[in-house]
Design a protein around this nucleic acid. Structure first.
Lengths: 128, 128
DNA sequence: CGTTTAGTTGACGTTTACGTAAAGTACGCT
DNA sequence: AGCGTACTTTACGTAAACGTCAACTAAACG
């Protein structure tokens, strides 16, 4: 795990993370303004720790999956087990989200299969 | 297959399709304005056939997968094999899209696995 | 000590994907 | 003929997710 890697630093500037993940600093500030991350401050300057970095990874994965920042925000809440008092409600929300994702998984598999079929037909026509 | 079902009608109004797929007529007109569908006209009134309906299904699936209408438009082009002269280029585009989707598939599987882990931990705490 | 360099907070601009009237046309009924 | 209902286009409004200045501050460097 990356978090256990002794070589991985514990402190990051906003530019560090922007560079690492190929996003703009503006985007990162925007995520903070929406409450998705909450870096510490040294005076006015944002200081990011591994926890913030980990959340950024989850945010970007959520985006690749097509979720809105609002949805990603809800999703991130699921990871804060300690801050989650209603464990039963947590399980329900996780199940909800799982259903969504599994519908999406089915969509994906259908689409991939169709595209492979199209490619097969195309390469057949090339071979003939 | 639905297209072979003799009971499925061949003509649909814009309201028919909106009702069937739970979207607004405005959305359908918008998709047309973006060139994603091209229904025939009876005077000014749009008349949809099975082909348009099939494209709508693809559009909505694309949306569930988080793609933009622009991306979905490109994607729909892949289905028009007849209109596609450069078969080699088609195969390349299909492969590109497949790579994207398989990255997305990996993201999804990771996310689903993590959520199941979270749920396991949550239900354990309930059981204890 | 002056000036790059990296950071900050506004504030306005932009694109996407529609929602929401507004105003008009066309058909089917009574 | 009048009415409701379904359809049309045109056009302005909106939420999300940033991009893009502008104006300012603070640390670092020769």
């Amino acid at each position: 795990m990356n978090a256990n890697d002794p070589d991985s630093p514990d402190l990051y500037s906003i530019a560090d993370l922007a560079r690492e993940f190929g996003i703009s600093t503006r985007a990162i500030r925007f995520y903070e303004s929406k409450g998705l991350i909450a870096p510490e401050r040294l005076g006015a300057t944002r200081v990011f720790r591994r926890r913030d970095r980990a959340r950024l990874i989850l945010i970007l994965r959520g985006k690749r999956l097509g979720f809105s920042l609002r949805e990603i925000s809800d999703y991130l809440g699921l990871y804060d087990a300690d801050r989650n008092q209603q464990v039963t409600m947590l399980a329900e929300k996780v199940d909800e989200r799982l259903n969504l994702l599994e519908q999406q998984l089915a969509d994906l598999q259908t689409t991939i299969a169709e595209l492979k079929e199209i490619r097969k037909l195309a390469t057949q026509r090339v071979a003939s």
